[in-house]
Simulated assay, not measured.
Amino acid sequence: MIKKQPIGIFDSGYGGLTVFRAIADLLPQYDYVYLGDNARAPYGNRSFNTIHQYTWECVQMLFDMGCPLVILACNTASAKALRTIQQRDLLNEDPAKRVLGVIRPTAEVIGNYSDSKEIGVLGTKGTVQSGSYLIEINNFFPDVKVYQQACPLWVPLIENGEYDQPGADYFVKKYLDQVLAQSANIDTLLLACTHYPLLLEKIKDYLPEGIKVVPQGDIVAASLRDYLQRHPEMEQQLSANGTQQFFTTSDDTMDFDHHASIFFGERVTSEFIALK
């Protein structure tokens, strides 16, 4: 008899909760365990090796909690750690387990949003430097031009609760101006960081009319649904009681709960989990 187990969702901090929200809305029947590595966040400016090490440690923690499937709801971790985890680490740990990211499912569809076939990608320094979106989007849409822009101050603004304050306006406008200066034909902007949906209204305020802004949550949720339909051997392993658990590597769970509730859109109550 197959033991039913939850889906794991990982992020370096809070941003993955915007993806989790979309997944839970689309697939509410499953059980979920969310893990935020808030003690070591942010990941955006860290090296490839460090991000891989931190991400793999957290994936293993979710495996230890019984999750056969883990979603890296973090663009930086997806860009800098996912390939090594999939091609090396899982083979040594348990080839039957699966780890999925957010970049490939986004790249598979983002070209369909653009009429001009010119897209701007807004992300952390780590995501932009990895070139992952340039490579993946080109695989699916070789006729689409991609322009990247790192927005290193957006995550600190968001995590410090300044995302809806006047002080954030300067940095929102600054990075939007920089990406749009790369081409007058950009008609679609991808928010390639799961924190950025909290800035969505400010972003729209500083964009010319007609430019689409695309968050990732709904895209990743739809991709997960399709994945489970195509892989019944995994879907059959998943428990379906509609439960949600939240864990953080920060020992200040009250602070996590406060911020997480904003990202998730409803009250979150977390438990502390110690790093090994």
Score class of each variant (00 low, 15 high):
261 S>G: 09
23 I>S: 02
129 Q>Y: 12
14 Y>C: 09
103 I>A: 02
148 Q>K: 12
81 A>P: 04
85 I>T: 03
240 A>V: 14
62 L>A: 05
29 Q>N: 13
231 H>E: 13
220 V>K: 06
258 H>Q: 11
209 E>F: 15
185 N>G: 15
234 M>R: 09
9 I>K: 07
211 I>T: 05
206 Y>S: 01
144 V>C: 02
247 F>M: 08
77 A>S: 11
157 L>T: 00
168 A>Y: 11
3 K>D: 12
261 S>L: 07
257 D>C: 12
91 L>I: 03
218 D>R: 02
185 N>L: 12
179 V>W: 05
71 I>F: 14
31 D>C: 05
57 E>V: 01
167 G>L: 12
135 I>T: 15
27 L>C: 00
213 V>N: 01
18 T>L: 09
230 R>Q: 14
267 R>W: 14
86 Q>I: 13
120 G>N: 09
7 I>P: 01
255 D>P: 12
151 C>E: 01
66 G>A: 07
72 L>K: 08
109 V>C: 05
78 S>F: 04
164 D>E: 14
249 T>A: 01
226 D>Q: 15
132 S>V: 07
263 F>G: 02
66 G>K: 01
168 A>H: 10
225 R>F: 13
12 S>V: 00
81 A>H: 00
143 D>I: 04
100 L>I: 12
99 V>Q: 00
259 H>V: 14
202 K>S: 04
234 M>G: 12
26 L>D: 08
223 S>D: 08
209 E>L: 13
180 L>V: 05
46 R>I: 07
62 L>F: 00
44 G>C: 02
108 E>F: 07
92 N>C: 13
145 K>H: 10
15 G>M: 12
85 I>L: 01
214 V>E: 00
220 V>M: 03
101 G>C: 06
104 R>N: 14
92 N>D: 12
159 E>F: 05
166 P>G: 06
233 E>S: 10
204 K>V: 11
73 A>W: 03
145 K>W: 10
35 L>Y: 08
220 V>C: 02
104 R>W: 15
136 E>I: 05
197 P>C: 06
107 A>Q: 02
257 D>F: 03
204 K>H: 11
251 D>I: 11
15 G>F: 07
250 S>F: 01
175 Y>G: 02
118 E>G: 10
13 G>C: 05
102 V>N: 00
57 E>S: 12
30 Y>K: 10
218 D>E: 15
46 R>A: 06
155 V>E: 02
227 Y>F: 13
119 I>M: 07
97 K>F: 08
225 R>V: 14
23 I>Q: 02
180 L>I: 04
47 S>C: 09
227 Y>T: 08
76 T>R: 04
272 F>M: 13
89 D>I: 04
19 V>R: 07
210 G>D: 04
75 N>L: 09
102 V>S: 03
49 N>M: 14
24 A>W: 13
192 A>E: 02
119 I>E: 06
255 D>E: 15
121 V>K: 01
269 T>E: 15
